[in-house]
Computed example of a mutant assay.
Amino acid sequence: MYNLEDYHYHLPESLIAQTPCEHRSLSRLMHLDRRRHGISHRRFLDIADLLRPGDLLVVNDTRVVPARLLGHKSTGGRVEVLIIDYAAGMKHLADTGGFQCDCLIRASRRPGAGTVLDLGEGIKATVIEHRDRISVVCFDGGTDFLSRLKKAGKMPLPPYIKRDQNPGQGSGTPAQMDEQNDRHDYQTVYANAEGAVAAPTAGLHFTNDLLATLSDKGVEVVQITLHVGYGTFVPVRVKDIRDHQIHSEYFIVDEQTAETINQARGAGRRVVAVGTTAVRTLEFCTDPGGRMSAGQGRCDLFIYPGYRFKCVDAMLTNFHLPESTLLMLISAFYDRERILNAYKVAVAEKYRFFSYGDAMFIE
C-alpha cells in the first residue's frame, strides 16, 4: 500500500469534467457505507437525507484568487505566471510593502533572475530567483497590485480543464465568457477568505438553498480556512509514497470553531468534513486525544494508509487523480482496495471526475 503504482486506475479522458453541472446540487453523488461496504448512486441533493440531525458539517471558506497572469518578458517573449502561494505574498506585503511569493513561470525560455515582466493592467514584476521548478517573483505596486490582479488575473483552473489560451478581443468572445463563468463556478457559495489558487471542490456542489435545508434539519455548519495551494496538483514522483514531501498550505481555525467541534465530539455527534482540505486541517489541529485546538500557520500533514483519524467521522469529496495524495488520503479513511473498486464502478457508471465533476460521501 506504500507503492505509488498501488494508487493507479484507468480513467477515460472523456470522463474528466470540463464544465460544472448546470445546477450545482444536481451533480451525482456516490454513497460509500464503510460499515456495510455498500455503494449506492444518488444526486448531491440527497445529502440532506444522508446527514443526520446533530451532525457538524465543516466547510473550507477559502476564496480562489485570479492568480494566473499572461504577459511578456522585457525581451518581448510571451510569459505566463501562476501565483502559487498567495498567503505568503500577503504576509510579505504586510511586512515589507511589496507582494512577493513563489510562482510557476511558463515561457519558451525561462526568464533569468532580474528579468522584468509586463503582465497587463499596469502590473510589473521582477524575477528574483529560481528554486528547481519554482520561481520567486516580486510584483510592483504595493497594495495597488491586489486591485490590478483582480482585473488582469484569470482563474487558476487545474491543467486538466482545457480553456482557450487566447483571450481574444471584446467581452463576448468564447474565452472571455468561459473566464466570466469560471469566476462564478469555481467558487463555493460560502467562499469568503481570499487566498486559494485552487478551489476546495467538494464544496462546489452546495447551494444556499441546500444549506438552508440542512440547517432546518438540525445540521450545524462551521467554517475553517485552508488556502489551497498548487501543491494539491503536484504529482508524486517517488516510488515509495512515504518519501513524498507534501507542500504546506496556510490555515486558520478560530477559537469558537475549535470549541464547537470539541463540544460536538464530546456529545457524540458526527464531524463531517467537506473536502480533503477540511480533513487535513481538522486532523492537523487535533491532538492524539481527539481535542481540537485553534490556531493559524502552515499545514503540511500528509495522510496515507496507516494514518489513524482523530477528528473526522465522515467526509464529502470529489473524485481524485490517479496516484495523487488526495486519493491516498481517502484510501486511508476507508480502504485502498475498496476505494479503487468504487472508482472502477464510477468509471463504469460514467461519473464525471475531478474539480468540476461529481462527488462521493464516505461514512
Rank of each mutant, 00 (worst) to 15 (best):
L4N: 08
L11W: 10
L11Y: 10
S25T: 09
L29W: 07
M30R: 02
H31F: 06
D33I: 06
R35N: 03
R35L: 04
I39S: 00
L45P: 02
L45H: 09
R52A: 11
P53V: 04
P53A: 05
L56S: 08
G71I: 05
I84N: 08
I84M: 12
D85L: 06
K91N: 10
L93V: 10
T96S: 15
T96M: 13
D102T: 02
D102R: 08
L104E: 00
I105Q: 00
I105Y: 00
S108G: 07
R110T: 09
G114R: 06
T115I: 04
V116K: 05
L117M: 04
D118R: 15
L119N: 03
G120P: 01
G122C: 12
I123C: 02
I134K: 10
I134P: 01
S135D: 11
V136I: 15
D140V: 04
G142F: 12
L146H: 08
L149C: 02
K150L: 08
R163F: 13
Q169L: 13
Q169T: 13
G170L: 14
D178A: 15
R183I: 10
Y186N: 11
T188G: 05
T188K: 07
A191N: 08
G195N: 04
A196H: 03
A198V: 08
A199W: 02
A202N: 09
G203Q: 13
S215I: 09
G218S: 10
V221H: 11
T225C: 15
P235E: 10
V238K: 12
K239G: 08
H247S: 13
Y250L: 13
V253G: 09
Q256T: 15
A258K: 10
E259S: 13
T260L: 06
Q263G: 05
A267S: 14
V279Q: 00
E283N: 07
F284P: 00
R291S: 15
G295N: 12
D300C: 14
I303N: 05
I303G: 04
F309A: 10
V312R: 02
D313M: 12
D313N: 14
D313K: 12
A314G: 13
T317Q: 03
P322S: 06
F333R: 00
Y334S: 03
D335V: 03
E337S: 07
A342E: 00
A342S: 02
K350D: 15
R352L: 09
F354Q: 02
A359L: 09
A359G: 13
I362E: 01
E363M: 13
